[in-house]
Every structure is written in C-alpha cells, then in structure tokens.
Amino acid sequence: MTATDFRNYSVLVIEDEAFTRMVLAKMLANLGFKAVHQAPDGEAGLAAVVAHAPDAVVCDVEMKPLDGLGFLKALRAGNDARAKALPVVFLTNRADPAVVAEAAALGADTFIVKPATPDTLRAKLGERLV
C-alpha cells in the first residue's frame, strides 16, 4: 500500500479538549500535511478557515460555545464557494443516527468515531483530498 501524499494540503483541527487537539495535530503532521492549524471551538474554527484557508477540516461534534454542527451550518451558509465545498470530517464519541443525519444534511463529508487513529485519518482525508 502506498502512503497518501498530503504534503500539498493543509488541515484545520477543531477540538475543545486541548490534549486531544494536540494529539490529532501531531498525527496529521506525521501524515505529512504541509500545515496543521488548530482551533478550540466552532467560533474559532470559522475564524481559522478565513485566516488559513485549509484544504480540509477535522472537527469535533460536541463543543461549546459553538459545536461542530453549528460550525458546519455557518460554514455552508456563507457566500464563499470554497468554504461551501471544504471537506469536513467529524469526530464523535458515538455515531448517533440523528446527529449523523443532521450533519449529512448540513454537508458533512464523513465521520470518525473517537479515538481517531492515523490510519482512519489517512483513509477519510485521502478520500476527499488526494
């Protein structure tokens, strides 16, 4: 199996738990992303999308004050065509069918049930970027 080449891509991690965010950022850096940006919640995530124009987003579902679904809704509601098409991979502790359905209706690309691993990140992001 060949390694997925992410060196031309940047990614944004939106996760409210600092340790989990750091671990995800390290895994993504080790996968070869040219840049890994971080945000502690959906509001900061929206600002980071504007500031850094990432190629993909890995986003926790359950956060405060703005959760992952709120982030995605705001992202898709804007006038920026790039943001409307930005791949968003949701992280969740449980794949609740109602949450999955709502996220899909808002334009989520896929889910990873926590804990994320390098292999699941490579596979889910590789499907959307490479």
Rank of each mutant, 00 (worst) to 15 (best):
M1A: 14
T2A: 11
T2Y: 03
A3Q: 05
T4S: 03
D5P: 01
F6P: 01
F6S: 00
N8S: 14
N8L: 10
N8C: 07
L12N: 06
V13R: 04
I14G: 05
D16R: 07
E17H: 15
A18T: 15
F19P: 10
R21D: 07
R21Y: 06
V23D: 11
L24Q: 12
L24V: 03
L24G: 03
L24C: 09
A25C: 08
A25I: 02
K26G: 09
L28G: 01
L28F: 02
A29F: 02
G32F: 00
G32N: 00
F33V: 01
K34R: 14
H37N: 12
P40H: 06
E43T: 12
E43P: 03
E43R: 14
A44Y: 04
A47Y: 04
A51N: 11
D55Q: 04
D55F: 01
V57N: 05
V58M: 07
C59S: 15
K64Q: 13
L66D: 07
L66E: 06
D67H: 09
G68F: 06
G70P: 09
G70T: 09
L72S: 05
L72D: 05
K73Q: 14
A74I: 03
A74D: 10
D80M: 07
R82S: 14
K84A: 14
A85M: 12
L86N: 03
P87H: 04
V88Y: 03
P97Q: 11
A98L: 15
V100P: 11
V100Y: 10
V100R: 15
A104L: 13
A105P: 09
D109H: 14
I112C: 08
V113K: 10
K114H: 10
K114Y: 10
A116N: 06
T117D: 01
T120F: 01
L121M: 06
A123F: 13
A123P: 04
K124T: 12
R128E: 08
